[in-house]
Amino acid sequence: MAKDIVIEAKNFNFYYGSVKALTDINIKIEKNSVTGIIGPSGCGKSTFLRSLNLMNNLILTARYDGEILIDGDNILKKDIDVVQLRRKVGMVFQKSNPFPKTIFENVAYGLKINGIKDKELINQRVEESLKGAALWDEVKDRLHVSAFDLSGGQQQRLCIARALAVQPEILLMDEPASALDPTATLKIEELIQVLKSKYTIIIVTHNMQQAARVSDYTAFFMMGKLIEYNKTNIMFTNPEHKITEDYITGRFG
């Protein structure tokens, strides 16, 4: 792992009130790689993902300590510009959450809140983002219909396009395909392979095969701890810990 490190967590702890959700997380994530985060429900994998763009700060009882460095800057410092951080670290949620607007407005939303008013530029970015999310061909003739008219898989790709429009460097995906059928899932997975040339992607998934298919690195979380972190092919063929092997082979979880 000598390449560029984009994200690095050092002794990161996270609490919901008095409940400790993450213990002593140390991890380095490489630029333009796909990192899969796996583990049983409640293991803290989503909490970790949401810590990377400080989405957990919305929870009133959340507390944390340690360091998370993104491009060398500690995002847990008190006076961090959360807004800038979230522009740089985009997120795609578990359940596709298009806004009740048109397809075009959904993608343009992030640009508008960032103060971009130039119509040409907005049109151009919307097209780029939709192409980037492999959705353009399917929707180019109906950009101004409601986003709810799209299928589930299309909606999720729209959410990816929406995230791409603000030109992030890192893309967090929280079980992006968990609500989709196999065909739509496959499309998302193919898309991830394309996107990684431009973005650093971290994807939480409960689907081991998916982690094996799409990710370069895999992190296995359990009970709030990072048990094992390695190249995906090593992890899935020759895990270091017994418990990782048990999980991967489906003996629990």
Partner: peptide
């Protein structure tokens, strides 16, 4: 980029 490490701009804050 990395601009988020700056303090949130005063006027916005």
């Amino acid at each position: 980029m990395g601009s988020f490490s700056n303090k949130l701009s005063f006027s916005k804050k």
